[in-house]
């Protein structure tokens, strides 16, 4: 691998890798703005990953697989929301429970259906369609990086714009933000903060389901724990992105790059593989520390 071409494939895969982070974080942004710490992103993604690939294989349709995978994730989100909001359980505990449930149910079902607790390959599964626009691809460097990904990558970009419009341009978004900032104000005008929180949770179910579908469908396989902490990193991306869609997009790009780098750096650099594999997580910790330092000074600044 020559030195000059090394960064391009690495950046190309950055774009591919960041898509699930981005979708999960955008969903989590809605719950965050509605005033809830949604730690269930990881579990909802996992459920989406499992059911989308299983249904895609069973129906022979990628599209149906994705739709049913999202449906499963939204259903799990509803249960999570119902227990947290209507039964008033602690949202951290129910989020944790959702994650543990997702981890368990996917393996149990995999074993029941396929008799296998490990990696389940679906050999006949169609690949996710790839968008290739030759005219754009001819643009040097940028064309190689941005074009030629599967369609869901581009869907995730569209979702950034859609999320921004919903949050900032619609009455629904105004009410979601009002709910998080002062639920009492929303209640005083006769709206139900609980209802808007439920909507936010269902939205996070939708985007996490799609995020999970990308993970499993691009591999054509389900691996137990396929999400590997991506839901948690998405949660960090929400804060790092300063709770805005564009900020989240940039934060997810950083995390996508970190993972891509660690994939390429294995073998290329003479550093223990364990260290390289932990690179995305180290980046997360450093980013979080940096973010809180910046926040600290910003608060101090506005105080005086």
């Amino acid at each position: 691998m020559s030195n000059s071409s090394f960064p391009v494939p690495m950046l190309h895969s950055t774009i591919r890798i960041m898509a699930p982070f981005l979708l999960a974080a955008l969903g989590g942004l809605f719950t965050e703005l509605a005033g809830m710490l949604n730690i269930a992103l990881e579990g909802l993604m996992l459920i989406g990953a499992f059911f989308s690939v299983v249904f895609a294989a069973a129906t022979g349709s990628l599209f149906l697989g994705i739709v049913l995978g999202i449906a499963a994730s939204v259903a799990a989100a509803y249960v999570f929301g119902f227990i947290s909001l209507n039964l008033r359980a602690n949202v951290f505990i129910t989020g944790l429970a959702t994650n543990l449930f997702a981890e368990g149910i996917t393996v149990v079902l995999a074993f029941q259906i396929f008799g296998n607790k490990g990696v389940i390959r679906f050999e006949n599964l169609a690949r996710l369609p790839v968008l290739s626009i030759p005219s754009l691809q001819r643009i040097p460097v940028l064309g190689d990086i941005l074009v030629g990904h599967n369609v869901l990558v581009y869907v995730s970009w569209i979702m950034v714009v859609v999320a921004a419009i919903i949050i900032y341009k619609t009455p629904f978004g105004l009410r979601i933000r009002g709910t998080g900032s002062n639920p009492g104000a929303v209640e005083a005008i006769g709206l139900s903060p609980k209802r808007y929180r439920m909507y936010a949770i269902l939205i996070s179910g939708f985007t996490c389901g799609l995020a999970g579908a990308i993970l499993s469908l691009q591999m054509g396989a389900f691996v137990p724990g396929i999400t590997a902490g991506r839901g948690w990193i998405a949660l960090v991306a929400i804060y790092l992105g300063n709770k805005t869609p564009l900020g989240i997009f940039i934060a997810c790009m950083v995390f996508g790059f970190a993972e891509s780098f660690s994939n390429y750096a294995q073998g290329a650099i003479d550093v223990p593989a364990d260290f390289i594999l932990s690179f995305p997580y180290i980046i997360t910790v450093i980013a979080m520390i940096g973010f809180s330092i910046v926040q600290h000074y910003r608060l101090k600044g506005s105080d005086t």
């Binding site: 419009i165 341009k169 619609t170 009455p171 105004l174 009410r175 933000r177 009002g178 900032s181 002062n182 009492g184 104000a185 929303v186 209640e187 005083a188 005008i189 006769g190 709206l191």
Partner: peptide, 25 residues
């Protein structure tokens, strides 16, 4: 019962927002 990060106008219309094209504030 105000939302601190909202403008005066946003606080006033919250819940009864005027719309355009049926969807947007």
């Amino acid at each position: 019962k105000l939302v601190p990060d909202f403008t005066v106008a946003e606080n006033v219309v919250l819940g009864m927002e005027p719309r355009k094209q049926g969807l947007f504030i």
